[in-house]
Nucleic acid binder design. Structure first.
Length: 252
DNA sequence: ATGGCCACCGAGGGTGGA
């Protein structure tokens, strides 16, 4: 099984990239974030023509998540139960016994801001919900744009801001690991300075000044079967790219 | 020089992203 995550920064703009990427990579599931489109504007026909089904949780202008699959997704759920939130950041579904949770974690803007407080509350609610989800479905993947670089090696030294690398954010990431989840990327040897996001400005991609903030955390039964996890920088080199690259995990 | 880019909305510059 092959599962990928990709923050596309507008599905409308990036649809050609997504369709090309599906054709080349043929994942069993592709988790998308930052759709920036309402459900009624979701490009379902184009995705179905590419041989994929879609479940989506969209809103106007901001946020929005989807899971594309070749086979039907079951037990689809939306948002974090019991966490009052206007922002569409979570969709989950089950594929061949694997619970796939697709999340667009809050940015947080600046440490100490209102948006940072929202980010931390959201992370706490997510962690509590996943604790229960893992009991119900021991095979689980948490895929998405976490907006957290978990360790120093996940942020280029030129990243001077606190946001995405602060202690509270990293502690929240560790709390997810505390559920038993494993960072699939770190199960394997990786190049130094492996990132998944590069600022559009300052020629950041060409200089590889980035952050690794898109992750695939997997539960122990899946970690045992994990055979590969890579960042695919190919789409970031295209004209008018997303600022994020897809990350792919494979299981035997 | 403390911002440079991109997408959104909506009709121009403001907001948010990371």
């Amino acid at each position: 099984m092959k599962i990928a995550t990709w923050n596309v920064n507008s599905l409308k703009v990036r649809l050609p990239h997504v369709l090309d990427w599906l054709a080349v990579n043929q994942p069993d599931a592709l988790c998308l974030q930052e759709l920036k489109c309402e459900n009624k504007a979701f490009p379902l026909a184009e995705i179905e023509a590419a041989g994929y089904q879609a479940q989506f949780n969209g809103q106007k202008t901001y946020n929005g998540v989807a899971i594309l699959t070749r086979q039907p997704l079951t037990d689809v759920s939306f948002d974090i139960p019991g966490f009052a939130d206007e922002q569409k950041r979570i969709i989950a579904g089950t594929l061949d016994g694997v619970r796939i949770v697709c999340g667009y974690f809050p940015n947080g803007q600046a440490v100490g801001s209102d948006k940072f407080a929202y980010k931390m509350a959201w992370l706490e609610a997510l962690t509590a919900w996943l604790r229960a989800e893992l009991l119900a479905t021991p095979k689980l993947v948490l895929a998405g744009d976490y907006n957290i670089a978990p360790e120093d090696r996940d942020a280029h030294p030129d990243w001077k801001d606190e946001i995405h690398v602060s202690v509270p954010e990293r502690d929240a990431f560790k709390a997810l690991l505390g559920l038993g989840l494993v960072d699939a990327f770190r199960l394997f040897e990786q190049p130094e300075k492996s990132f998944s996001w590069w600022d559009y400005r300052m020629m950041a991609f060409r200089r590889n000044v980035g952050l690794r903030i898109d992750h695939l955390l997997v539960s122990p039964p899946l970690a045992e079967k994990c055979t590969a996890c890579v960042v695919d920088k190919t789409p970031r080199k295209l004209e008018r790219p997303s600022d994020h690259a897809p990350v792919i995990v494979e299981f035997a």
